[in-house]
Design a binder for these strands. Sequence first.
DNA 1: CTGAAAGCGCTAACAA
DNA 2: TTGTTAGCGCTTTCAG
Lengths: 348, 348
Amino acid sequence: MPTVDDVARVAQVSRQTVSNVLNSPDIVREGTRARVQQAIDDLGYRPHASARRLRTRKSSTIGVRLDPLRDGISGAVLDRFVHKLAEQADARDLRVMIFTADGHDDELAHIRRLRDGSDVDAFVLIGTDHGDSRISWLIDNRVPFVSFGRPWGAEHPNPRHRWIDVDGRSGVRDAVAHLRASGARRIGWIGWPSPSGTGDERRAGWVEACGLDEADRARYSAITEDGVPEGSRCAEGMLALAEPPDAIVCASDSLALGALMAAQAAGRPDLPVVGFDDTPVAAAVGLSSIEQPLDEVVAAALALLFGPHGDDVLPNPDSDEEPTHRLLVPRLVERRSSHLRLGGNPGA
Amino acid sequence: MPTVDDVARVAQVSRQTVSNVLNSPDIVREGTRARVQQAIDDLGYRPHASARRLRTRKSSTIGVRLDPLRDGISGAVLDRFVHKLAEQADARDLRVMIFTADGHDDELAHIRRLRDGSDVDAFVLIGTDHGDSRISWLIDNRVPFVSFGRPWGAEHPNPRHRWIDVDGRSGVRDAVAHLRASGARRIGWIGWPSPSGTGDERRAGWVEACGLDEADRARYSAITEDGVPEGSRCAEGMLALAEPPDAIVCASDSLALGALMAAQAAGRPDLPVVGFDDTPVAAAVGLSSIEQPLDEVVAAALALLFGPHGDDVLPNPDSDEEPTHRLLVPRLVERRSSHLRLGGNPGA
DNA sequence: CTGAAAGCGCTAACAA
DNA sequence: TTGTTAGCGCTTTCAG
């Protein structure tokens, strides 16, 4: 592998000029630059990343912890997030390093290693929970990071905490409003047990828009852990009511898939069911779903970390002068769940 | 951040000794080592990765291209693969860098950049296709790599090509045999169009074990692109035959999910359907599936690249002296598809 | 076993 | 504008 010196020799300039051509092309005269560039191309020269990093004291690398493998339907969102992160990072000439960890403490241990070894100079946290222990640690230890997930349950959110999140409440609210506009009167909700920041917000959207009184809200909502069979079970119960719901909105695609199946088993293949995340599974089975704008999420995350364009990490903000977070709005992807005959009506 | 010098000063030894404690602890006297270790702990010293890499000329980093987002049901396998790769790499003190690319050429461009910049010193290719153009390029350019996927369609596979793969043929063969042992007589197949290395192999397993003559094989097999609706459509056709199949085996979980739905729509909720990859979706809806032993796949990939234990990259082999590949056997995960009432039998 | 010297490839200061 | 000098933090010679 050629080095700057080789290029310099071939281009008949000093080693420094080569470096300038690479890093501050504007301060090099046109002709010289062309000559150097030529030499670079001829030799197939490529700067040695480690040498550069050693010198500049920045790794231009982002670290992300891959979420533990989950149910896998919902997990797909995070995989897509990581995918897009890699894509957009590349555009800024940043690299992405991944790791896995068991729990928050282990994650922090990994972060510490990666950080202290200067492997990585900024981290993206995927998902946050109530009183997330990682946040204060990262801030106290001056580790630059941004979280996909807001600071749940903090009375005084730390202004040094940069985050982006998707406004699930408004997403659900809009979906419910849309269903009502289409004539639905009793819209059910299947969601997760509280406290779950994300889940509570999504449910709040339903509460705000469903137009049901408290008694009906109790009747038409179900709480369960995430999962397809769980969704099925809850929907079954709701559909067995004397006045079953007109439509069901769920906190996740897993639940929605279950609900859809239950609806069909109950002979109501056309019951509108809306999921959340617009996972590939939703697309595959023709389920409406609320889609998170992942491209924007990733772009916002990078902008928060590195500013609008560069690849220099901004330290965690000192004060709350400028906005240190973004709340993005999801959108409903409508599908006719009946595009696939999922059953329930043999021969129809 | 403290450096070796700081540690040396505190521990009252030369800088060198510190390095030795870290890299060749055996050649340092017990007492000295303890003292140095103490200083390391006290200071929270962590070697600077870039400095070390610059000096040792190895990055201890593996590069992986994230597959383009697909249907997402099948894509989940690859995400799990990457996850496990990160896990096992960590155990060897290796880091994993991810990137995305549009097509093979773009992927090679990325690899080249990462390689020439010494960011990464070995790559894992996920998936290979007929006459894969990347393989010879990587070998010619001496880029150490291993592929998850065998060299399809090469008359003379290059002995420098290290790969691991899962024997889909035997997986399907076993599943079919198992179904027959349970009494199934007419076992259908839904798979992908040829040529598709993976798909052809899986189909071959069915051919070998199904015990049908050529005419019946034509009747009971369907070829389609991957996808849930596609699987549904094919299964529908098959189930409409005068003598419908007893069971259906599919080349993927997407197809199988579709088939399962079609079966239920056709009033045959108990028809055994087997998918491939044992994705989370299969687990969620209670679909039998053929599981790839990803832990072993990853372990084998790392062993091929780095030897049984170390973190030193082995160059692509010079000859075919030692085994440069591994073919692993998948196993059937049986589930009662009826554990979830997917529909088709309201009130049952 | 421990210490001193050299240099991996690069870029930030400074001098010319 | 270009060239010179001086390290970034580490490990690998080679003497002690």
